[in-house]
Design a protein around this nucleic acid. Structure first.
Lengths: 338, 338
DNA sequence: TTGTAGGCGTTATCAA
DNA sequence: TTGATAACGCCTACAA
């Protein structure tokens, strides 16, 4: 049995193809009687309109692309889930663009929009994956797009994220309030915007408290458990050890705790550890991890919402939207030792 | 500037649309000279062929759908990453179908294939999301499809997974070898195929060792950390406590350990805990978790490979492919107490 | 409320 | 090696 098209259905129902089309797109414009008649045929033969034909005509694919560095990262996974839900309930499908941080792949996936394979873009990295003419306004050169998590340095892009500077500041202020003065920071990779913002918040908080910065206490990690362990080792070798370690991701914090414990240190009595993200496991490691909560679902749903608005032709104001973070105090932080 | 089409390029380059098309699809059939000429125009105006037009003609969308219950689960995320890589390097894009376990959503996403929006299907649940006629051979009614992880009861479907029965058996045999006789099992939801297989392996291993089954030691969880904690509480309330607990997911094992420790038990001295999956955090919790390793990357890459083969018109034998699991012995299991 | 007709952008077939 | 022509399946003025 060959696959039937709209004309076959029309013939079987004794109506025109246009009417069949209307049954799907604007059923209120079809009389009850014909509607039933056509519907019956459709159900009988199991006709499904071909999306490609429709897309070609309407110039809408019904897809959006989400460009993320790593779906394996719980932060991204949480965001993507919210995106997928929002997209689905608006009739859109989500194309997954896992880039492993590679610019080449970011461009590949952004290209899907240029090819008409997707209508809009959700971008979770800090590069704009399009060649743009600096003489023209940026907004006019970009497709419907929302940038999440990683800041892009432009006021013309719609951005959704937590205020990383303020969040890091809040984290450090809490540690300071516990009496800590030698506070180490384990950052993410130096080319990641969010990591640099957190670093800024860290330095700001220390400055405001009149604590001198010590570059030996500032280590660069890779947002992975293993780099937490590596950095912890380095910090323990210091002549003057920190009394608290602020990690820019929970994974690294987990690595730090693991290493400290292996070396016989007690967290938080000897050294306090603070994370960032509040992944699921943060409350289940031992001791449970004090960390900065990111509202993953809200980040994802805000991103998709703003994108859908654009796709529906509504104007969305460019610029940053900050979503609220929350300091989750648990058991990995405590008073500074004497 | 309006978007240019293939005819515009053809006009600019003084060739026919067919030639421009060939520059993309079969450049070896175009003379060097015309190739260069056309290429130059393409680069100048930044022409990108519209995928919808091509798809309509070729009846290939270039997309595949991955239907998974929850992208937030590290097991799924790991598999998806491998899938995405394999798909991308073959020129396919991956549509993400996160279903939250809802049959309705499974069908929605499977529908993308019927609508021509995707060419094939990767299925990580145990229902076939198509209405099929039981009188006809199943294979002829299904689109190119591969089923991963969750068994479907049919020899006509291509399936890729770990041998859950054997894996669970190996896990229990190891516990038995440590002297454990009262071994509890915390299963996944009762409608999940993989969970039932693991349960089968658990029972088989105990039977073969001549250990009587005790239904009080067999609890149903939800694959979540929280249900691990809940089940652990129940087990501790038993008149005869287990000396070992086998959890059908690492998340539940982490919950179990957390609860045991909170109650003052020492793992593994008082009670041994074994997980399943070997997620990233398994080796970083305290004590590090003994568990059954699933080869996530290999599962994903095998799935996509078998799907791509079908999409290229090659015949793929239906039936199950088992990928090797591995027992990872760490610190959460030890000799049974006297 | 329904039908007619043309075209969305590409590729496949066939002929040159 | 290249070109002319006809679909692919659908939607949407416009006309009836």
């Amino acid at each position: 049995m060959a696959i039937l098209g709209i004309r076959d259905i029309a013939a079987l129902a004794n109506v025109s193809p246009a009417t069949v089309s209307r049954v799907f797109s604007t059923p209120e414009m079809v009389s009850k009687k014909t509607l039933n008649k056509v519907q019956k045929i459709i159900d009988e033969v199991g006709y499904r309109p071909n999306r490609m034909g429709a897309s070609l005509r309407t110039r809408k694919s019904g897809n959006i692309v989400a460009i993320i560095p790593d779906i394996t990262n719980p932060v991204n996974a949480g965001i993507i889930r919210a995106i997928e839900q929002g997209a689905q309930s608006a009739g859109y499908s989500v194309l997954l663009g896992d880039t492993q941080g590679l610019e080449e792949r970011e461009q590949h996936y952004a290209g899907l929009v240029s090819h008409g394979q997707a209508d809009g873009l959700l971008l979770f990295c800090s590069r704009i994956p399009f060649k743009t003419d600096p003489n023209l306004p940026l907004m006019e050169q970009l497709p419907p797009m929302v940038n999440g998590n990683e800041r892009i340095d432009s006021d013309e892009v719609i951005q959704v994220a937590v205020d990383n500077v303020a969040a890091a500041k809040a984290a450090i202020n809490y540690l300071i309030s516990l009496g800590h003065k030698r506070i180490a920071a384990i950052t993410g990779p130096g080319n990641i915007a969010s990591s640099n913002e957190r670093l800024e918040g860290y330095q700001l908080a220390l400055n405001e408290a009149g604590i001198e910065l010590d570059s030996a206490l500032q280590l660069e990690g890779e947002y992975l458990v293993q780099s937490g362990m590596d950095c912890a080792r380095q910090l323990l070798l210091l002549p003057q050890r920190p009394t608290a370690i602020f990690c820019f991701s929970d994974d690294m914090a987990i690595g730090v705790m693991k290493f400290l414990q292996k070396q016989g240190f007690v967290v938080p009595d000897d050294i306090s550890v603070m994370g960032f993200d509040d992944i699921n496991y943060a409350k289940f490691v031992t001791p449970s991890l004090t960390t900065v909560h990111q509202p993953l679902h809200e980040i994802g749903s805000t991103c998709i919402e703003l994108l859908l608005k654009q796709l529906q032709g509504q104007k969305v104001e460019p610029g940053r939207r900050y979503l609220p973070f929350e300091l989750k105090v648990r058991d990995s932080t405590g008073k500074a030792p004497e």
